[in-house]
């Protein structure tokens, strides 16, 4: 994959680039500030951009702003946000455009290199990869919408794993169920949430969004 890496700390940027290249990916550009990030993404149009939230010049949420701006210019452009902390607030902002291709993970998720690269590929393919902590919090919100309350406990946990970005096969492994059972749960979840779309990846994203929009 062609990847842009935006991270202001040299050590982390270098480490990320090395990790990605070890696994055979091509880092087409790196950036260390918000404006640089936006330019790099728009110039190189990578398969996916890995972006840190806090970057110069203001050291606030430059990276997130650049990512959202880039996705306004190029809808659905895959971005994976890496941060030292995860917030529901940012997660909601990232998935609000409903275009998919969004990842939001803690920086330590790179320690599990295989899972991290899986997540990266999912995002590049238009799926989602949200940190489990954020997903748990997102789904723990008291919901008042009636069609959401109709979800069973099992359907909710499947939905949570879907939000993290797992495939049916991966969900089945995680819940010790057969893949067939999982696909039944996902179908009933889609029905209850009133999602009728043909594109299966998009359907999964929509399900999560519907749940969050309450």
């Amino acid at each position: 994959m062609r990847i842009v890496v935006a991270e202001d700390l040299y050590l982390l940027r270098d480490g990320l680039v090395r990790l990605l290249e070890t696994f055979g990916h091509e880092v087409v550009a790196t950036a260390a500030t918000g404006p640089e990030t936006l330019r790099a993404i728009l110039d190189h149009r990578p398969d996916v951009a890995i972006i840190d939230v806090r970057m110069p010049p203001t050291n606030t949420d430059e990276g997130l702003v650049a990512a959202l701006e880039a996705r306004r210019e190029v809808p659905g452009l895959p971005v994976l946000i890496l941060s030292q902390h995860v917030e529901q607030l940012y997660a909601r902002e990232l998935i609000a455009d409903q275009a998919g291709g969004v990842g939001y993970l803690l920086k330590d998720s790179v320690f599990e290199a295989d899972q991290f690269l899986d997540a990266l590929e999912r995002v590049a393919a238009g799926g989602t990869a949200l940190d489990p902590v954020v997903v748990t919090k997102l789904l723990a919100r008291p919901t008042s919408a009636p069609h959401l309350a109709r979800l069973t406990e099992r359907e909710r946990s499947v939905l949570a794993l879907m939000a993290e970005g797992l495939s049916n096969a991966a969900i089945a492994k995680r819940l010790f169920l057969s893949e067939g059972a999982i696909s039944k749960y996902t179908t009933s979840t889609f029905d209850k949430l009133g999602i009728h779309s043909d594109d299966s990846a998009n359907r999964r994203v929509l399900a999560v969004l519907t749940y969050l929009k309450d």
Binding site: T60, H85, E87
Partner: peptide, 25 residues
Amino acid sequence: LVRGVHPPVLVERGLVDAIRALALD
């Protein structure tokens, strides 16, 4: 520890968004 000393959202977004983040949790 950092969250207890100075929540990162406060630095990144300021008071109101930090409270919004807190409200969501």
